[in-house]
């Protein structure tokens, strides 16, 4: 069984995944995606990527396009293109979660700057503004009142990219200074942790210095994690949830889940569980 792990920035996680896949008997190769070139007008069966590909690129668009190309060449990719697209765009994720009736924070989209204040007032301040595509809490901002909101809008309008001129606004959920991250591999929760916001920040992202602590999910949490993972198409995912006064709310599902933070807080190899799932997805 040959498994290809695609990367564009080699991190501890990719090396751990290769090691664990090899321990499970797979011939696992790490392949740098950056130098790859494809003649996409010619469709052929690409055998050089083996029986299954684990997509681990850090760039969302590189992940998205490369996955689509590989699927066109008959390659089985974890996660598939549609899962990647659904998770990589917060608008699409929220649409999917809402349609599947999975509790998620109240979210509004303003298609121009003219209606941002109106949307925020409907939800009530403070509101959280998030980019459609982005990670690690980057460009996620909180507006505690109309004045702060309009300052953010003014700055966004100065940016050249037209996607910045549409607005994803979310209620600021009253929650403890932590959220939940579950690493899902198929029908298994490979790890579940609390992520605590670092001092002087309200965001809990490990990339921003958030600290992790192991959590044994209860029945309600397990159910919502699996429902969210299934709704976006399943695979290897990072499901993020918050504890609100009304119960758990899923606010994000990540398609190229980073797990160094979760691994630091938990025992049992997360990479081993992911590798086992990916091997099970090999094209027969």
């Amino acid at each position: 069984m040959k498994l290809t792990i695609l990367f564009d920035r080699l991190r501890w996680e990719e090396k751990a995944l290769q090691k664990e896949a090899q321990a499970l008997g797979a011939n696992a190769a790490l392949v740098d995606a950056k130098p790859l070139v494809f003649e996409i007008s010619r469709v052929r069966r690409a055998r050089e990527f083996g029986d299954v590909v684990l997509q681990r690129c850090i760039s969302f668009y590189r992940t998205l396009y490369l996955t689509r190309i590989l699927e066109n060449l008959g390659v089985s990719v974890v996660n598939p293109y549609l899962v990647t697209e659904s998770c990589g765009n917060k608008l699409l994720t929220t649409l999917i979660l809402a349609k599947a009736k999975i509790p998620t924070p109240r979210t509004m989209i303003s298609l121009s700057s003219d209606t941002v204040a109106e949307s925020a007032q409907k939800m009530g301040f403070p509101v959280v503004l998030k980019p459609f595509v982005g990670s690690w809490g980057r460009m996620v901002s909180i507006a505690r009142d109309k004045e702060a909101l309009l300052s953010i809008v003014e700055l966004r309008e100065e940016l050249q990219n037209p996607i910045e001129h549409m607005y994803y606004l979310q209620e600021f959920v009253k929650r403890p200074p932590r959220d939940v991250r579950a690493v899902v591999a198929g029908d298994e929760i490979a790890a579940c942790v609390y992520r605590y916001a670092p001092e002087d920040d309200w965001r809990t992202n490990v990339a921003r210095g958030g600290l992790t602590k192991a959590l044994k999910p209860n029945k309600e949490l397990r159910e919502i994690i699996f429902r969210a993972a299934d709704a976006v198409g399943g695979g290897v995912l990072g499901v993020d949830a918050m504890e609100s006064e009304e119960g758990y709310l899923v606010h994000e599902v990540n398609n190229t889940v980073e797990f160094a933070g979760a691994q630091a807080a938990t025992s049992g190899s997360i990479a081993r569980k992911i590798a086992a799932y990916v091997i099970s997805r090999a094209r027969k």
Partner: peptide, 25 residues
């Protein structure tokens, strides 16, 4: 830097890609 090549025990380096807006999970 990114390790570009390892030849005869010598590593060749190239500048690593810098953080982009679409980087992440």
């Amino acid at each position: 830097y990114e390790v570009a090549e390892i030849k005869n025990g010598t590593a060749m380096l190239k500048p690593a890609e810098t953080i982009e807006e679409d980087w992440g999970e």
